[in-house]
């Protein structure tokens, strides 16, 4: 049986992993390679690394960092931040990443999804989206971009469906409302998108305790979930999360 994936997320700023709440108040957590290795050995099913300041600084993704992380772990690696064209995607793939996450770029230029899928296969192209609760949108959630700074007026569910039609192989649903709160995932939008698209959905934002993961898989219908603060601080390990999943009857990889 296919297991539900636990995916630690490393937000990298100037070569260091940082963590903030709603993209603010960032604190230093450590070296990306050391943390990647520790999580890989500790049971991570995949790893995602975001170069969170690349876009704002209008520079390409830190390829050296991606290369070092890819050399050090032997589980799937997704990266995002600072991708602006297919050539950038190719550099990331040649550096050893499996998946490229596009977010604000895809909103501005939806064809980048189709171009990336045509060049590398749809399994390489991950659409990241940052929906925020907005009752004026048909599905109740609006897409934001540029680290929650810009509101697009786009309906989150419509965007998810369109992105899959264009060639997105996975969708990361990162709730703006839940991000950094550690009070649990936003189940409504996660379930809505997971039930509506034929590709895997990765829940993101709000993981604070192992039971939050149980809930997002059981009730949010997620295929995978991103965890950050709750493991970065050392409050919980990936094994703590996976034991809770196993005890709740959710398929999870336990030998690593």
């Amino acid at each position: 049986m296919l297991t539900k994936r636990i995916i630690p997320c490393l937000d990298v700023r100037q070569g260091r992993v940082t963590k903030g709440t709603k993209f603010k108040n960032n604190i230093d957590l450590g070296d990306p390679v050391e943390m990647a290795v520790a999580y890989s050995d500790g049971g991570a099913d995949e790893l995602v690394v975001y170069d969170i300041t690349a876009s704002a600084e209008r520079r390409p993704i830190d390829i050296q960092m991606v290369t070092e992380v890819a050399k050090s772990i032997h589980i799937p690696l997704a990266v995002g931040g600072g991708i602006s064209c297919v050539a950038d995607m190719e550099r990331v793939i040649l550096a050893g990443a499996e998946k490229i996450s596009v977010n604000s770029l895809a909103v501005r230029q939806p064809d980048i999804i189709a171009e990336g899928a045509a060049a590398f296969g749809r399994q390489c192209i991950v659409l990241g989206m940052d929906p925020v609760h907005n009752p004026k949108c048909p599905c109740g959630y609006e897409i934001t971009t540029r680290g929650f700074r810009e509101f697009t007026g786009m309906d989150a569910l419509e965007w998810a469906k369109r992105a899959v039609d264009l060639g997105a192989g996975e969708i990361v649903v990162n709730s703006v409302d839940a991000d950094g709160t550690r009070e649990g995932f936003e189940l409504t939008i996660t379930k809505m998108i997971a039930d509506a698209v034929g590709v895997p959905v990765v829940a993101s934002g709000g993981a604070g305790r192992p039971d939050h993961l149980v809930t997002v898989f059981r009730d949010g219908h997620a295929d995978a979930a991103i965890v950050a603060g709750m493991i970065h601080t050392g409050d919980y390990t990936i094994t703590d999360i996976k034991r809770a999943m196993r005890d709740a009857g959710i398929p999870t990889r336990m030998s690593y």
């Binding site: 296919l2 799937p76 749809r122 996975e170 034929g198 590709v199």
Partner: peptide, 26 residues
């Protein structure tokens, strides 16, 4: 085949011969 409850592609860790998990994308 399109099957309710299963996403395509299969992405993730699945068991070979009911035992060890390996990473699949297909």
């Amino acid at each position: 085949p399109d099957t309710p409850g299963f996403k395509i592609p299969e992405i993730g860790w699945n068991q070979v011969n009911g035992d060890i998990d390996y990473y699949f994308v297909h």
